[in-house]
Computed example of a mutant assay.
Amino acid sequence: MLHGVNLVIPAGETHILFGPNGSGKSSLLATIMGLPPYRVTSGHILFKGRPVEAVPVDERARLGFGMTFQRPPGLDGVTVEAFTAAIGSADMLKEEAAALDFRGFEERDVIVGFSGGEIKRWEILKLFLKRSALCLFDEPESGVDLEHIAAVGGAIDPLLGANAPKSLPRTLLGNTSTL
């Protein structure tokens, strides 16, 4: 349970929460995303000036919320290509996948048999394809070996950096238990 959280993140800014395991970082992100069983019992979550604490997770996703997970589930029988088509981004898949060195994954089932680094690149690619305005990163380094931490950071950079479309300023809130 979280109490007394007051956080303002202006559009286009990146904020990282540091803290020990079990301190509520992931719970905060899940609450912002609207994932059960987390709920707001007092106060508000505002997005673009609109209160969203009563808005269901699917509508938050349509509003521009996107989240990467520490341990996302595999989706047996759902290919990357089919998932991408379902979110309306099939036209962007090849170009964005190439930018993240994620070519050749179109026919593979989402997350099934992916390495730690492949999972994280898929999670980042998902935010690109969804055109998320608010990107919530739950420990993006989790499950990635030391050799590939820089690659994950390099994949996140274009999502937020100089090459990001100016018409879609992305805001990032992430967490980590490591420095």
Rank of each mutant, 00 (worst) to 15 (best):
residue 40 V to I: 11
residue 29 L to G: 00
residue 41 T to F: 03
residue 16 I to K: 03
residue 46 L to E: 13
residue 22 G to A: 09
residue 30 A to Q: 14
residue 38 Y to I: 07
residue 52 V to M: 00
residue 47 F to R: 04
residue 9 I to Y: 08
residue 47 F to D: 08
residue 52 V to A: 00
residue 28 L to F: 06
residue 45 I to H: 11
residue 33 M to V: 09
residue 17 L to I: 15
residue 39 R to L: 09
residue 28 L to S: 01
residue 26 S to A: 10
residue 45 I to T: 09
residue 31 T to F: 04
residue 4 G to L: 08
residue 37 P to K: 02
residue 33 M to A: 14
residue 49 G to L: 04
residue 53 E to I: 02
residue 26 S to H: 02
residue 8 V to W: 05
residue 21 N to I: 06
residue 48 K to L: 10
residue 23 S to G: 08
residue 20 P to V: 10
residue 46 L to K: 07
residue 9 I to A: 01
residue 40 V to T: 04
residue 31 T to G: 09
residue 32 I to C: 09
residue 21 N to H: 06
residue 18 F to H: 13
residue 19 G to K: 07
residue 38 Y to N: 12
residue 51 P to G: 11
residue 47 F to K: 03
residue 24 G to D: 11
residue 24 G to V: 12
residue 46 L to F: 14
residue 2 L to M: 04
residue 24 G to L: 11
residue 48 K to M: 09
residue 53 E to Q: 13
residue 4 G to T: 07
residue 39 R to F: 12
residue 44 H to P: 01
residue 53 E to D: 13
residue 36 P to K: 06
residue 16 I to D: 04
residue 31 T to P: 10
residue 22 G to N: 08
residue 31 T to E: 11
residue 25 K to A: 12
residue 18 F to I: 10
residue 6 N to G: 13
residue 42 S to M: 05
residue 6 N to I: 06
residue 17 L to V: 07
residue 41 T to S: 05
residue 7 L to A: 13
residue 54 A to W: 02
residue 39 R to D: 05
residue 3 H to G: 08
residue 3 H to Q: 15
residue 28 L to N: 01
residue 21 N to Y: 08
residue 52 V to Q: 01
residue 52 V to T: 02
residue 35 L to S: 08
residue 31 T to H: 10
residue 52 V to I: 14
residue 23 S to D: 09
residue 48 K to P: 00
residue 26 S to Q: 07
residue 15 H to K: 14
residue 16 I to A: 15
residue 51 P to A: 12
residue 14 T to M: 11
residue 22 G to S: 06
residue 48 K to W: 04
residue 26 S to C: 09
residue 30 A to T: 08
residue 4 G to K: 09
residue 23 S to A: 15
residue 54 A to R: 15
residue 22 G to E: 10
residue 49 G to K: 00
residue 53 E to S: 07
residue 14 T to W: 05
residue 49 G to V: 04
residue 54 A to K: 14
residue 5 V to E: 12
residue 32 I to G: 01
residue 40 V to G: 08
residue 29 L to W: 00
residue 3 H to W: 12
residue 18 F to P: 00
residue 21 N to L: 01
residue 49 G to D: 04
residue 49 G to R: 00
residue 35 L to G: 00
residue 54 A to G: 11
residue 14 T to F: 08
residue 35 L to C: 01
residue 40 V to L: 09
residue 11 A to P: 05
residue 44 H to K: 14
residue 47 F to I: 04
residue 20 P to G: 11
residue 29 L to H: 02
residue 26 S to V: 08
residue 14 T to S: 14
residue 40 V to N: 05
